[in-house]
Computed example of a mutant assay.
Amino acid sequence: MKIKKAVITAAARGERLYPVADTIQKAMLPVVDVDGLHKPVIQIIAEEAYASGIEEICIVCAPGDGQRYAGAFASLRDNLIRFYQGSDWAQTEADKIDHLLSTTQFIEQSEARGYGHAVYCAKDFVGDEPFLLLLGDYLYVSQKGAKRCAAQLIELASKEGCSVSAVNPTIEHQIGRYGTITGKHVAGQTGMYSIEKLIEKPSLSQAELELQTSGLRAGYYLCFFGMHVFTPTVFQLLQNEVEAGSNNVLLTPALQQLAETEKYLALEMKGRRYDLSRRHGLLRAQVALGLAGEAHNETLTTLVESLAEANS
């Protein structure tokens, strides 16, 4: 199957980033990308999708934010052209923003009814096609020499013709932050699992009883990476709860049904994800992008100098 569409959920208001997220959408916070240029977080995520073969994007956002996103990107494009006239890099970046605006739809989640509802808001955009799902407050950095994280996932989903969720082996004291899965290792395939059970943010005792996965190091569990490829079946599974009027539509129960309904795989990513909503999340993501990109030496020097100054 071919995955041409991506959905980025960016409807949460970013309470954990208050007060900065009170004046600007957290997905528009600036970060220096691997190419050394300052970009809004949402643009970096979109470029991850485009570079992995995605052709159209839907950003699910809070009421009123669709126009704000479009206006902010239009302003960025105009400023690049106005203030850097004759500069090839500025024109290239302006063209990238034009491409983003021309291939992106903004769909507003009218009510804050949970993550599953936010995903469901993209149902009409997706139609009957498989799609890539990304989080608007996560940045993804692949290992040196590896394909982009989204490309790794799309490649497997296309080959196997099924839904695939990205996962990372995660130490036990952190699993309360993530959806956690267990399943059987697919014979002859490194880091690939057939998903059997999923629990959203399990307790350690619950994980010890129900989510142990053979082959992982002791004390580690397979946790969601914040990136998935789904078949449109996921919308059918979400529909009942959405139409029932639930105020907190969760995605994970629908994914448990998906695992019981059709082929559903998990793939260990060759890379790391950075949750920007966590304390120091932006800092950690910025350091990772700096070390992975053109500013590697500069970033390393800055870190060493900062540590020396802090301990002097």
Rank of each mutant, 00 (worst) to 15 (best):
71 G>S: 07
58 C>R: 03
144 K>H: 09
183 G>C: 02
82 R>W: 01
192 M>C: 10
103 T>N: 15
299 T>N: 07
71 G>I: 01
225 F>M: 13
275 D>I: 06
41 V>G: 03
213 T>D: 05
211 L>Q: 02
262 E>A: 05
163 S>Q: 03
105 Q>I: 02
84 Y>L: 12
64 G>E: 07
143 Q>R: 13
116 G>E: 08
94 A>V: 08
34 V>W: 00
11 A>L: 00
245 G>K: 12
165 S>D: 01
92 T>V: 10
57 I>F: 05
184 K>C: 00
285 A>T: 06
112 A>G: 05
202 P>D: 09
291 L>K: 09
234 V>E: 04
19 P>Q: 07
257 Q>M: 12
245 G>T: 11
308 A>I: 13
283 L>K: 10
53 G>H: 04
199 I>W: 01
190 T>C: 05
80 L>D: 04
66 G>C: 07
142 S>I: 00
94 A>Q: 08
4 K>C: 04
184 K>A: 09
67 Q>H: 01
213 T>Q: 06
245 G>F: 04
15 E>R: 14
23 T>K: 14
297 N>M: 10
253 P>A: 10
153 L>M: 08
37 L>H: 12
297 N>K: 12
87 S>I: 07
226 G>S: 09
244 A>K: 11
135 L>M: 12
194 S>I: 00
115 Y>V: 12
78 D>K: 11
288 A>M: 11
115 Y>T: 10
38 H>G: 06
272 R>V: 02
50 Y>D: 02
26 K>H: 11
102 S>M: 09
178 Y>F: 15
240 N>Y: 02
282 L>S: 06
72 A>R: 10
128 D>L: 08
195 I>C: 07
22 D>T: 06
149 C>N: 13
32 V>A: 06
208 E>G: 03
235 F>P: 00
17 L>Y: 02
74 A>H: 07
214 S>C: 09
281 G>N: 05
37 L>W: 13
230 F>D: 11
30 P>W: 11
306 S>K: 14
127 G>S: 12
52 S>W: 02
278 R>K: 13
179 G>N: 07
251 L>C: 05
199 I>D: 00
58 C>E: 01
141 V>T: 01
304 V>A: 15
8 I>M: 07
195 I>E: 00
4 K>L: 11
251 L>S: 04
227 M>I: 15
203 S>D: 10
187 A>D: 13
231 T>S: 14
291 L>H: 08
29 L>A: 09
1 M>R: 11
131 F>R: 08
147 K>F: 04
223 C>Y: 01
197 K>I: 01
29 L>H: 07
307 L>Y: 12
75 S>W: 00
77 R>Q: 15
309 E>I: 12
296 H>N: 10
305 E>T: 12
92 T>H: 10
55 E>Q: 13
